[in-house]
Lab assay of single mutants.
Amino acid sequence: MASQGTKRSYEQMETDGERQNATEIRASVGKMIDGIGRFYIQMCTELKLSDYEGRLIQNSLTIERMVLSAFDERRNKYLEEHPSAGKDPKKTGGPIYKRVDRKWMRELVLYDKEEIRRIWRQANNGDDATAGLTHMMIWHSNLNDTTYQRTRALVRTGMDPRMCSLMQGSTLPRRSGAAGAAVKGVGTMVMELIRMIKRGINDRNFWRGENGRKTRSAYERMCNILKGKFQTAAQRAMMDQVRESRNPGNAEIEDLIFLARSALILRGSVAHKSCLPACVYGPAVASGYDFEKEGYSLVGIDPFKLLQNSQVYSLIRPNENPAHKSQLVWMACNSAAFEDLRVLSFIRGTKVSPRGKLSTRGVQIASNENMDAMESSTLELRSRYWAIRTRSGGNTNQQRASAGQISVQPAFSVQRNLPFDKPTIMAAFTGNTEGRTSDMRAEIIRMMEGAKPEEMSFQGRGVFELSDERAANPIVPSFDMSNEGSYFFGDNAEEYDN
């Protein structure tokens, strides 16, 4: 993207840094990872977990959730003011799984939030270390993106479920800051804005008074975040219109849905970061690795190297396929839920299948599930090659597409044709070009129609051997075009429920 120079890199967003050079960025990201790792080690000690239990991804998720809940100030305040039966607002906890007599047992633990905050700050040299908290939120978000298709949420806001490739980060909490905003897809931002506008339509006082002023500035800020994701002048001009509207209503909703559809071809720039579970960072720190000293990046080879040398386990339900569970977590670790499966298959070195073909449910185990038949197995999170994460949407291309997802959002900077089903997408653009945004709409449609099938995206960008740390010898991959490109292809993934 041309304006790259004016933006802070995501590592800076990730670490609240002012302008830093590459070495400083690597050190501050490393410091953040160190903090998460030290916190995780301490929690495993508190909970008396064995090494194996500490490497269980379900335990990692519970521990991450506990610290996120302990620092969720708004919710904590709300819980104190609106006490609900049987919930102690000062405590947080969740299921911890232990191996007892050759069987997995679930144990519900409860801790004072104050105590968890103390352990977290102690692991982070006394700081609140917001960057580390956001990092864990993005890992949870990436896992949700890989596990669930947001059909219901899309339909509720009037969008087409086939636009799911635009929904990265749709389950990120509001408090995820600049680093969170960077990884949100165009569809996620559109959905947040539509929800806001709908509230304004239904509630006369939404934009009024002292609160209304705050609401208005939040609305304009979200519009600017979305505008910054678009790469064409016409899309940005249309966002200006939406932002400046005196009284946002149905016309703005129409414009936003139009823009979301246009992003299936004229893709937005959305950041991709490899955020790993805390149970990967903990053992690495415990083994003596100093992330701050060595430096770390979320968008280069580092996460690949770390996963190459990590042992992570997962509980497996009786009829689940461990290899499929591994694929789910591998995609989440690489922030690749909406990437082209052919690119992923090449990088991973084994075939990556669409969601609907995987015999696996989510990673988390519900409290009512029976533990008797639970097994555990090693997650295979290694890769054959590594590639640089991208934040450009890439230019655009036609490809055989599917009944489910009709476009992709690249996660890796790797040369390819970008699949999208042009006739299906263009069919949504018939007729409606009147109104105050008509010239911009016409211009956007013209650009979409001009998108050429034979153009290559990320020209000359390749993948790298894991021994090639400096990215000196790019390998331009070859793809098996007979395979499906979309992950949520004609899909039956479970729906995400809060």
Rank of each mutant, 00 (worst) to 15 (best):
M1P: 08
S3W: 13
S3D: 00
Q4E: 11
T6E: 00
K7E: 02
K7G: 00
R8G: 06
Y10Q: 09
Q12L: 12
Q12V: 05
M13K: 04
D16Q: 11
D16G: 15
D16L: 00
Q20S: 15
N21L: 14
T23D: 00
I25V: 15
I25A: 01
A27C: 01
S28I: 01
D34E: 14
D34L: 13
I36T: 14
R38D: 11
F39D: 02
Y40K: 01
Y40D: 14
Q42R: 05
M43C: 10
C44G: 12
C44H: 07
K48Y: 00
L49M: 13
Y52T: 15
R55F: 09
Q58P: 11
S60K: 03
L61H: 09
I63Q: 07
I63H: 05
M66C: 13
S69T: 12
E73Q: 10
E73A: 09
K77E: 02
K77M: 14
L79G: 05
H82N: 09
H82P: 00
H82Q: 15
P83H: 08
S84V: 03
S84Q: 05
A85N: 15
K87V: 10
D88V: 03
P89W: 14
P89K: 01
P89H: 04
K90M: 13
K91E: 03
G93M: 12
G93Q: 13
P95K: 11
I96Y: 14
I96F: 12
Y97F: 14
Y97K: 15
D101V: 10
D101Q: 09
L108G: 13
Y111K: 01
I116N: 12
R117G: 02
R118Q: 12
W120L: 06
R121S: 15
R121C: 14
G126S: 12
D128V: 13
T130R: 12
A131K: 00
L133P: 05
T134V: 14
T134M: 10
H135S: 07
M136F: 10
M137D: 07
M137P: 09
W139Y: 13
H140Y: 11
S141Q: 03
L143H: 13
N144D: 05
D145K: 11
T146G: 07
Y148D: 08
Q149G: 05
Q149H: 05
Q149L: 02
R150V: 01
R152N: 05
L154W: 07
V155Q: 10
R156F: 01
G158S: 14
M159F: 02
D160M: 12
R162E: 11
M163C: 14
C164A: 15
C164G: 02
S170R: 09
T171K: 04
T171W: 01
L172T: 04
P173R: 06
P173M: 03
S176N: 01
G177I: 09
A178G: 08
G180S: 02
V183D: 07
K184T: 06
G185N: 07
V190D: 05
E192D: 10
E192W: 03
L193N: 14
M196D: 06
M196G: 10
I197A: 15
R199K: 11
F206V: 08
F206W: 10
F206M: 08
F206H: 12
R208Q: 09
E210S: 07
N211M: 15
N211S: 11
G212F: 10
R213T: 11
K214G: 06
K214W: 11
K214M: 13
T215Y: 02
E220V: 00
E220F: 09
E220D: 15
C223I: 07
C223D: 09
I225C: 10
L226Y: 09
L226E: 09
K229G: 09
F230S: 00
Q231R: 14
Q235R: 03
Q235W: 13
R236I: 01
D240G: 12
Q241C: 04
E244M: 06
S245C: 12
P248Q: 12
G249Y: 03
N250V: 08
E252M: 07
I253C: 01
L256Q: 14
L256F: 04
I257D: 00
I257N: 04
F258C: 13
L259H: 06
L259M: 14
I265N: 03
L266D: 07
R267S: 00
R267H: 05
G268M: 03
A271Q: 03
H272N: 01
K273A: 05
C275T: 14
L276V: 12
L276E: 04
C279L: 13
C279I: 04
V280P: 03
G282C: 10
V285K: 05
S287L: 01
Y289P: 02
F291Y: 14
K293W: 01
E294F: 04
Y296C: 10
V299L: 07
V299K: 08
V299S: 07
I301K: 10
D302V: 06
D302M: 00
L306Y: 09
L306G: 03
N309H: 09
N309C: 02
S310A: 15
Q311F: 02
Q311M: 00
L315N: 05
L315K: 12
L315H: 04
I316A: 03
I316C: 14
R317C: 07
N319H: 15
N319R: 14
P322Y: 06
P322E: 03
H324Q: 15
K325Y: 08
S326Y: 12
V329C: 12
W330F: 05
M331N: 09
M331V: 08
M331W: 06
A332G: 12
C333G: 15
A337G: 13
F338K: 00
E339H: 04
E339W: 10
D340G: 11
V343P: 03
L344K: 11
S345A: 09
S345M: 06
S345D: 07
S345Q: 10
S345V: 05
F346T: 09
F346D: 05
I347D: 04
T350C: 12
T350H: 11
K351V: 07
K351F: 15
R355K: 14
R355Q: 10
K357C: 09
K357Q: 11
K357L: 04
S359M: 00
T360R: 05
R361W: 02
R361E: 06
G362M: 06
Q364W: 05
A366Y: 08
S367P: 00
S367T: 15
E369S: 10
M371F: 01
A373G: 06
E375G: 11
S376A: 11
S377D: 01
S377G: 10
L379T: 08
L379S: 08
E380R: 03
R382M: 09
Y385D: 13
Y385M: 15
Y385G: 03
W386E: 07
W386R: 06
I388E: 02
I388Y: 08
I388K: 13
S392P: 05
T396I: 03
N397D: 00
Q399R: 15
R400P: 11
A401G: 04
A401P: 12
S402L: 06
S402M: 01
F412V: 09
V414Q: 06
Q415V: 12
R416H: 13
R416K: 14
N417Q: 12
L418M: 15
P419N: 03
T424K: 01
I425F: 00
A428Q: 10
F429L: 06
F429E: 02
N432R: 06
G435F: 10
R436M: 03
T437N: 08
D439L: 01
R441K: 09
R446I: 05
R446F: 00
M447D: 00
M448R: 10
M448T: 14
E449S: 07
A451G: 15
A451N: 14
K452V: 12
P453E: 01
E455L: 14
E455N: 14
E455V: 11
M456V: 12
M456F: 00
F458A: 00
Q459Y: 03
Q459P: 11
G460D: 00
R461S: 05
G462W: 01
G462F: 09
G462N: 10
V463L: 11
L466I: 13
D468E: 08
R470A: 00
A472C: 03
N473C: 00
V476T: 08
V476L: 07
D480A: 14
M481V: 02
N483R: 00
G485T: 04
S486D: 03
S486F: 06
S486M: 09
F488Y: 05
F489L: 06
F489Q: 03
N492P: 03
N492L: 06
A493S: 01
A493M: 10
E494S: 01
E494T: 09
Y496M: 07
D497G: 14
N498Y: 02
